[in-house]
Amino acid sequence: MSDPLFPGTSPTGLPQAATPFFPGQDVSPKSSRRILTFLLGAASGAIVVGLTWTVFALLPGLTAPPADNFSLKGSLTLTSTSLSGAYSGSECYGTGGYNDISKGAAVTVYGASGQVLAVGSLVSGRQGAGSLSCVFAFTVPEVPVGEKFYQVEVSHRGKVTVQADQARTTGVFVTLGN
């Protein structure tokens, strides 16, 4: 309690500790709890947002895969008069001068400047529409986007150039043989 003649002093005449006061400020313990609750809530929210960001940014597989690669799909059709004996059950394969064309043969994708970008392989050949054709499907995963065109080579048979849009959408379909 303060002396009415000397504000800021106690009845003993000693100065009282001043409490800062701002006009309109409620200094009740109830308002202090509200402020503390608000600050704790804001801090908790910031922690939750930070942890969520960390989980999605650092753990692989939880975010969408980047769109900087695609799978190049296609087929090679081998046509040859020498295919008449190149069937084993429902599978077919190249013979004679085409004996490198079979399941597992390399499919290499090159960039516009000639660098190897990705490698895949032929799957088992299946008889095509004619009795003298054998069709090998392939998928080359993880081909980087961003090239103007791609070059595709099966085994050592030479490169076929395809536009980037065609490579990503319709694929590559080549024919080999006589």
Rank of each mutant, 00 (worst) to 15 (best):
M1L: 13
S2Q: 14
D3T: 06
D3V: 00
S10I: 00
T12I: 00
L14E: 15
P15E: 07
A17I: 05
A18N: 06
A18M: 07
G24N: 12
S31W: 03
S32G: 14
R33I: 01
R33C: 01
R33P: 01
R34D: 12
I35G: 03
T37G: 11
T37I: 10
G41I: 06
A43F: 13
A43Q: 08
S44F: 12
A46R: 01
I47M: 09
V49G: 07
V49W: 09
W53E: 05
T54F: 13
V55C: 05
F56N: 11
F56S: 08
L58Q: 14
L58E: 08
L58Y: 08
L59P: 02
L59H: 02
L62G: 11
A64L: 14
A64I: 08
P65N: 11
P65G: 09
P66D: 12
A67D: 15
D68M: 03
D68E: 12
S71C: 02
S71W: 01
G74R: 06
L78R: 04
T79S: 12
S80W: 00
S80I: 02
S80A: 13
T81P: 15
T81D: 15
S84Y: 11
S84P: 01
G85N: 11
A86T: 04
A86M: 12
Y87T: 08
S88V: 08
S88L: 12
T95H: 02
T95A: 09
G96P: 00
Y98V: 01
Y98G: 02
N99V: 04
N99H: 08
D100W: 00
K103R: 08
A105Q: 03
V107M: 08
T108F: 03
T108L: 02
T108M: 03
T108R: 09
V109Y: 02
V109L: 11
A112N: 12
Q115N: 11
V116E: 14
V116T: 15
L117S: 05
L117D: 08
G120H: 03
G120C: 01
G125R: 05
R126W: 00
G128K: 11
G128E: 09
A129K: 15
G130T: 15
S133F: 10
C134S: 06
C134K: 04
F136H: 14
F136M: 03
V140Q: 11
V143S: 07
V143G: 03
P144A: 08
G146D: 09
G146L: 05
Y150M: 07
Q151F: 04
H156R: 06
H156Q: 10
V162S: 03
V162D: 07
A164S: 15
A164T: 07
D165F: 13
T169K: 10
T170G: 06
F173R: 10
V174E: 10
V174W: 06
